[in-house]
Design a protein around this nucleic acid. Sequence first.
DNA 1: CTGGGGAGGGGGCCC
DNA 2: CGGGCCCCCTCCCCA
Length: 254
Amino acid sequence: MPRSFLVKKYFTSKRPNYSELECQNDILPERYPLSELPGANSDFPVACFTAGLVWDVSLVPQLQGPASLSGLSSAQGPLDLSSPSSLSCSSSGEEDEGRTSDPPSPEPTDTYHPQQPRSRRGSKSKPRATEEQRETTVPTTRPPFFCKHCPKEYNSLGALKMHIRSHTLPCVCPTCGKAFSRPWLLRGHIRTHTGERPFSCPHCNRAFADRSNLRAHLQTHAEVKKYQCSTCSRTFSRMSLLQKHVSAGCPHSA
DNA sequence: CTGGGGAGGGGGCCC
DNA sequence: CGGGCCCCCTCCCCA
């Protein structure tokens, strides 16, 4: 979903790293929305094979791990259509536990359980390196914060609150009533109603409502794609395709 | 069956 | 501390 329809200020100290995307393509992204394409590393494709830019299937954890912890995908339970309240999200969502589609936590106790040590980081498949580092190098002195809806835990209240929104889904689409955890998810969803597609491909005429989808699309233009089979060296634009390739039995594996 | 688009979710970072 | 945005990932569906 458009996680990025919100035009943003680029040129700030922090820039999105699109080099990964574009380096495999030769054209400069003039039509890229927001003119944001990175200082285009128009490196040679091969140069992109650095630091894991091309995924080797051997490095991929067990395909399809517990990946889908997003039990919310079908979180379309009974929505509270009574108060669409435009695009605004009811910020008091943390309290109304009724809307979550997640099964209640086995331990429906309180939200915070300082002191109870549990496994850190209970979700994302691939934590960012910086965070990884931080966690290993900086001894966490603060007690973890536990979600009362699920077993997840966080080191900061802010992170926990953010997570809880995925249970309470305070942002409701005024058009169809679908609920989302964050305002920008809702705004992206609204694009599906309006048909707005601000992200156009610099290589073809296609346009997308979601930057992530454009990014995936750009892979289809790349000669050398991001995900590579360690056996036959064939590359794929998506992890899922690589997984299929492997599970279907790479012709070169036997 | 494969490749690709559409839609959505999550955590982290910066302001 | 919260909002906004980023990147990454996944699932579903269709050509």
